[in-house]
């Protein structure tokens, strides 16, 4: 009996190793979403800055819309925030925020403290819209094209590398599509 006890650490480690092996083939940042290729579902939610005002799908104006899911409880959001301020200056896109299951006061404070890169932020206190589009955590960023179709979902913080690799090519494709559609 006692000798079996001595194998317990080995067995525990074996289980851990299997888990880590599985983990290697999961990319924590790329996530398939059932929503890709589908239109953004409609919603009716307040904005962060004025609880009275309700916004919906049609208020996300712009040819290429980026919807960034953020919250004050998320450290990586803090990390990507300076870069979001950068992106917001790109004339090709419009950046909207989806403040996800957050405290209203804290969220407002955050935008005051670190500046507001968003055209506006949707205040999704219950996570209703987040549930509809399949948000798992924050930060996450969705790309919506000029016809209102979700084209991409990216989980994890955006930095320069990610932007160059994951977003810029798609934005160029979308611009080409728009040009083709217009002509």
């Amino acid at each position: 009996m006692k000798s079996i006890i001595r194998f317990i650490p080995l067995i525990l480690f074996f289980l851990l190793a299997v888990l880590l092996y599985r983990g290697l083939f999961l990319n924590p940042q790329s996530m398939p979403s059932a929503m890709i290729g589908k239109p953004l579902p409609n919603f009716e939610l307040p904005t962060l800055k004025s609880i009275e005002q309700r916004v919906g799908r049609d208020d996300l104006q712009g040819d290429i819309v980026l919807l960034n899911v953020w919250a004050t409880w998320c450290i990586q959001c803090k990390y990507e925030h300076p870069y979001l301020l950068n992106i917001a200056r790109d004339p090709r896109i419009k950046l909207y925020g989806l403040n996800f299951t957050d405290d209203h006061k804290a969220a407002l404070n955050w935008l005051k403290q670190y500046q507001d890169p968003y055209v506006f932020s949707i205040f999704d206190e219950q996570g209703a819209l987040g549930l509809d589009i399949g948000v798992f955590g924050a930060p996450e960023t969705f790309v919506i094209d000029h016809t209102g179709i979700i084209r991409k979902r990216f989980a994890g913080p955006i930095n320069d590398q990610v932007w160059q690799k994951e977003f810029l090519p798609l934005i160029e494709t979308l611009e080409a599509e728009m040009a083709a559609g217009a002509s």
């Binding site: 888990l19 983990g23 924590p28 996530m31 409880w73 450290i75 990586q76 798992f136």
Partner: peptide
């Protein structure tokens, strides 16, 4: 630290565990 990985590996979704 491993919890996000465990949940992910079991196909239950993606989460992040924070300072709280």
């Amino acid at each position: 630290t491993l919890y996000p990985l465990i949940i992910d590996a079991m196909g239950l979704g993606k989460i992040s565990v924070g300072a709280p």
